[in-house]
């Protein structure tokens, strides 16, 4: 008993805080899962992925807010790269730069462009992701402007996937709100 008296009880965190953390971690795990799934898909082109994991960033933006969405986008790349064995490789650096840029652009357009929906936010994020990936490759790894020859077709693919992912995110958000 004297020993028990000496132990200070850790105060229980507020329920709202626990709920927020649980939601953030659930979304993070989903995003990491999709990140790994995309890495396993056959390559559709150099540095091109469908961006399915970005849907989770959009969900986090709506459900948890901008700061949580940005953190989720960054941690998703770090944990996902660790699990697929590309941490600190050029692939990781390119992914991290693209993911961070996409998060920043998505939060900016969400904050400053009136009337934009998750579709427009996703579109802007996809374009930023692809552009920054190529700029990163050109500035850090292969210093050749010829790399930008790839930009228009890759951006066109990004427009398609960005729009699709945004629509999918809107559908999921509506279903989540219905269930709450």
């Amino acid at each position: 008993m004297p020993l028990l008296n000496k132990i200070k009880l850790i105060p229980r965190p507020p329920l709202a805080e626990l709920e927020y953390k649980a939601k953030w971690l659930s979304l993070l795990l989903l995003a990491v899962g999709l990140h790994i799934f995309e890495a396993a898909l056959p390559s559709l082109g150099p540095w091109f992925k469908p961006g399915l994991a970005n849907i989770i960033t959009l969900l986090a933006l709506v459900i948890l807010g901008p700061a949580s969405a940005a953190m989720l986008a960054i941690w998703r790349v770090i944990i996902g790269s660790f699990l697929i064995g590309t941490l600190f490789t050029p692939t990781f650096i390119i992914s991290l730069a693209g993911g961070t840029a996409a998060a920043v652009v998505m939060l900016t357009v969400w904050r400053f462009i009136p009337g934009i929906t998750l579709i427009g936010i996703s579109l802007a994020g996809a374009l930023a992701h692809m552009t920054v990936q190529l700029v990163t490759v050109e500035s850090l790894f292969i210093h050749q402007h010829a790399l930008y020859y790839l930009l228009p077709p890759l951006l066109l693919l990004s427009v398609i996937t960005g729009w699709f992912n945004g629509g999918l995110a809107m559908y999921i958000v509506s279903r989540v709100k219905e269930s709450e």
């Binding site: 462009i113 009136p114 009337g115 934009i116 929906t117 579709i119 427009g120 579109l123 802007a124 374009l127 930009l151 228009p152 951006l155 066109l156 427009v159 729009w163 699709f164 945004g166 629509g167 999918l168 809107m170 559908y171 509506s174």
Partner: peptide, 22 residues
């Protein structure tokens, strides 16, 4: 779910025009 708002479509149009000219 996939139609987007007018702002989204405007953004889409601007993106497509830029990509086309590039």
């Amino acid at each position: 779910w996939f139609k987007g708002s007018w702002t989204d479509r405007l953004l889409l149009l601007a993106s497509l025009i830029t990509i086309f000219y590039a």
